[in-house]
């Protein structure tokens, strides 16, 4: 509650938070909010500009863009949040262990991170998507599995510098177990960058999905995601601006909102950035 109050104090994080909540509501109530069936095809009314009957126009198959955008919220947010959840979980645990124990453990984990970081993500995603079909679950898993290294390095660096701090030494002296020190003492002090990275990550995952869609290996139609709507609209961007402008704005606003929220969270959570 206190956290919420602090977030609301800052105009930027307040805006971010409001948008994030609003988007979540749209995703949850997609069915109720959509004026049309997002899959309903009408070849007599293709590529119609925004009008009273279709507020955001229609796409190349005559489907209602607004309804697809609303359903797309569900898909895109899901991709973003789940992918980041996976990446953060893996990254935090591995980074914490590496940074805390050091030595051989650190070396092995960091070698793994190095190897993973040397692959261009697109190639890894490509190979995995070729194995599995590009269903949204696989895409989330793949984005998550290929984006944890940054978090791991962040957390490790944080642990590396924190593990010799006084409060850790103090905890050791009083005989706290390794796990307790790891997750009870150091992690809370290292959580700020993780949270910031995670909120930035939601946006980044949504952007990754749109990049994959651009390459044709993102969420596959007819399931609407903002990425594949944007890609489908790009070839006709000049005559059917509504096909690329609205999904583009949707991505823009969402990513921005998550990032502003992340910034705000950092201010509130990080004990070191607090002004006092």
């Amino acid at each position: 509650m206190k956290l919420l109050k602090e977030l609301m104090k800052n105009p930027m994080s307040c805006t971010g938070l409001l948008f994030v909540v609003a988007l979540a509501l749209i995703a949850i109530f997609a069915k109720e909010l959509s004026p049309y069936d997002p899959q309903a095809i009408d070849t007599y009314h293709i590529l119609e500009a925004p009008s009273q009957s279709h507020l955001l126009g229609t796409d190349a198959l005559g489907r209602d863009v607004l309804s697809r955008l609303i359903y797309g919220t569900r898909i895109s947010l899901l991709v973003g949040i789940v992918a980041v959840g996976i990446a953060t979980a893996i990254g935090t645990v591995l980074g914490a262990i590496a940074g805390f124990y050091g030595g051989v453990v650190d070396m092995v984990i960091m070698r793994l991170v190095d190897v993973m970081l040397c692959f261009p993500t697109i190639f890894l995603i490509m190979a995995v998507i070729a194995f599995l079909e590009p269903s949204i679950w696989n895409i989330m898993a793949v984005i998550g599995l290929t984006s944890w290294m940054g978090v791991a390095r962040l957390v490790r660096a944080e642990f590396l510098s924190l593990r010799s701090r006084d409060f850790v030494l103090a905890a050791r002296v009083i005989g706290a177990s390794d796990w307790r020190i790891l997750f009870g003492h150091i992690l809370p002090n290292a959580i700020a960058p993780v949270i910031v990275a995670a909120t930035l990550g939601v946006g980044s995952a949504i952007l990754t999905e749109s990049a994959l869609s651009f390459l044709g290996i993102g969420v596959q139609p007819p399931t609407p995601s903002w990425g594949n709507m944007l890609t489908a609209g790009k070839d006709n961007i000049e005559i059917a601006w509504w096909l690329s402008v609205f999904p583009g704005l949707a991505i823009l606003i969402t990513v921005l909102a998550y990032n502003l929220l992340g910034e705000g969270l950092r201010e509130v959570l990080d004990p070191r950035t607090k002004r006092s």
Binding site: P11, M12, G203, L207, S210, A211, F214, G227, L230, T231, K234, I237, S244, G248, I251, L252, I253, T254, V255, L256, N259, L260, E263
Partner: peptide, 21 residues
């Protein structure tokens, strides 16, 4: 605040969309 919003706007726009525009 303004620069924060601006740089994030740049980040948040899908790159191929921005390029086309």
């Amino acid at each position: 605040h303004i620069t924060t919003v601006l740089v994030y706007l740049g980040y948040a726009a899908p790159s191929f969309w921005l390029a086309l525009l």
